[in-house]
Design a protein around this nucleic acid. Structure first.
Length: 90
DNA sequence: GGCGTGATTGTTAGG
DNA sequence: CCTAACAATCACGCC
């Protein structure tokens, strides 16, 4: 039953809440957003979302590499904040 | 020792 | 301001 808790009501979890990190999608979306939207002037968000996601994997495992790479480095970013958060929280 | 959970991340668009 | 598809994530805490 792991239905990704559809973001209905974000609840607080930690006092400092370091917030995890981004995902490969976020980095990929960062580039697609201006690209996809540029090719789809006036496209509705609902369509972009789908069209974006299908293309996301549609490109190539190596294509997402750069995004993955950033996702990994971003994680480290969160890793640090969370570490500091734990220490400061404790 | 292995497990599941929840929380979060960012984009788009419009009322 | 918020939500919803789209996807990944993945660290955290726990017995």
């Amino acid at each position: 039953m792991s239905e990704r808790r559809i973001r209905g009501t974000r609840k607080k979890k930690d006092p400092n809440a370091p917030k995890r990190s981004l995902s490969a999608y976020m980095f990929f979306a960062n580039e697609q957003r201006d690209v996809v939207r540029a090719e789809n002037p006036g496209i509705a968000f609902g369509q972009i979302g789908k069209l974006l996601g299908e293309k996301w994997k549609a490109l190539d495992a190596a294509g997402k590499v750069p995004y993955e790479a950033k996702a990994e480095e971003d994680k480290k970013r969160y890793e640090l904040e969370k570490l500091e958060y734990q220490k400061t929280l404790a």
